[in-house]
Computed example of a mutant assay.
Amino acid sequence: MKRKRRFLSKLLIKILIILPVTVWAFSEAEKLPVRGFAIASPAPDNFEQFIAFVNNDLSKTAVNQLFLRINYNYQFKSHPELAEKNALSEQQVKTIVKTAAQYNIEIIPIINMLGHQSWKKDNIHSLLRVYPEFEENAGLKVLDKDFYTRAYCPNHPDVHDVVLAVIDELVEVFGAKGIHLGMDEVFILGEDGCERCRGQNKAELFANEVNLFQAHLARKNIAMYIWGDRLLNGHTTGLGMWGASKNDTDSAIDLISKNVIICDWQYESAPPTPGYFAVKGLNVISASYQVPSVAEFQVANMIAMRASSNDTIKNRLFGVMHTYWGSFDSFYQCYQGKACDHKERASAVKTFSIIYPKIKANN
């Protein structure tokens, strides 16, 4: 009997090794607590297409959390001066929420805090365009050929009065139980050019900002999500300055609230970072983008870790998220088999269809 069990066990292992991940993993993927999709909010011109996508396509997948990159593309009442040109109205947002709710899909708005306040040296986004005094002075870094994105100064005395107001308004209009505050790729922080921040510990600056938002949201019983790259060491992991930090913010992982939910984006490879976050006491979601094999492994890995972990660790391993970094319109056109304007994004659309085939989750 023991010999038979050993034989069956070895046979099962061989089958799992030989079979493609998709054969055995994705029916199980529907059981993951979080099955997320992150995409840009639609422009008003594409609003009806977005509603059609939710009704006709997203509703037939296992997605149960839609992370909507709204940023300042909303007609704010608290700070109307911050609304971008193609901002959604209150009624349009509520229609999106109501439509998604029919299929038990939770909407989680995304608005970038700290970093990503512009692209490179021009095209300044609304917060720094309206309030240029909020900007962290990048000093000589602004002359660097790799200068990427501007940030606001977390020590400016007036910045939080503004950003907390727009965060609160998004939570309210979306009726949200959680909000994603970005905080990825923060390359400008604690710079020598900033009279308020120079010489300060960058990990503490980052952690203080995270904890300020988390404490504010906790008082309203709202969950807080951020990307996880600034909490990983780009040197020791070999993940570099994008998927991890090379500007000394990584030790913030031991300083931030354990109630923050980490969205661990790793797009080119699938290192064991979800387990690292979980062992550190943080709840985590694995995020994919444009490489199907990496996304497939992340799903399989999340399932395997949950199956083989004790309850303490298992309960921190929330699930997976697929991301698309382009406009909704470009996604929708490609998803429908029409023009795909970008090779990487075309692969991201293909990956979405692999991760979330049109099979409605049972739960």
Score class of each variant (00 low, 15 high):
Gln102Phe: 08
Ala203Asp: 14
Tyr103Ser: 07
Tyr131Met: 04
Met305Trp: 07
Met305Ala: 09
Ile96Ala: 11
Leu66Pro: 02
Ala40Lys: 15
Arg35Gln: 06
Ala62Thr: 07
Phe7Ser: 15
Ala307Gly: 08
Gly228Phe: 02
Leu82Pro: 02
His235Glu: 08
Ser78Thr: 06
Lys10Met: 11
Leu212Asn: 13
Lys338Tyr: 10
Gln266Thr: 02
Gly139Thr: 15
Asn310Ala: 12
Phe277Trp: 04
Pro80Thr: 00
Leu205Phe: 13
Leu82Lys: 04
Val23Gln: 09
Glu28Gln: 11
Ile110Pro: 05
Phe318Ile: 13
Val166Leu: 00
Tyr356Asn: 01
Thr236Trp: 11
Glu81Leu: 00
Gln117Gly: 11
Gly326Asn: 12
Arg345Ala: 14
Asp329Val: 15
Phe53Gly: 08
Met302Ile: 04
Asp57Ile: 05
Tyr332Lys: 14
Arg316Trp: 03
Val97Asn: 08
Asp248Asn: 12
Gln91Val: 12
Phe331Ile: 08
Asp161Val: 13
Asn233Gly: 04
Ile18His: 14
Glu204Ile: 15
Pro154Thr: 14
Leu189Gly: 02
Asn104Val: 10
Lys220Met: 03
Ala203Thr: 13
Pro80His: 01
Leu170Ile: 04
Asn55Pro: 11
Gln214Val: 04
Glu136Arg: 14
Tyr103Glu: 06
Asn211Glu: 08
Pro271Lys: 00
Ser251Arg: 14
Ala300Glu: 04
Ile222Val: 04
Phe206Lys: 09
Asn208His: 11
Met183Arg: 03
Val163Pro: 04
Asn104His: 10
Leu231Gln: 02
Gln336Met: 13
Ile18Ala: 14
Ser308Arg: 09
Gln117Leu: 10
Glu81Gln: 06
Glu191Asn: 07
Trp325His: 12
Val93Pro: 07
Ala25Leu: 02
Tyr152Lys: 10
Asp184Cys: 03
Ser27Tyr: 08
Val163Phe: 04
Lys246Asn: 02
Ile256Lys: 03
Ala346Pro: 05
Thr273Ala: 01
Glu344Leu: 06
Lys280Ile: 07
Asp161Met: 12
Asp144Pro: 02
Lys60Val: 03
Ile179Ser: 00
Gln333Met: 15
Gln91Leu: 13
Asp45Ala: 15
Asp311Met: 07
Ser309Cys: 05
Thr99Tyr: 11
Gly238His: 03
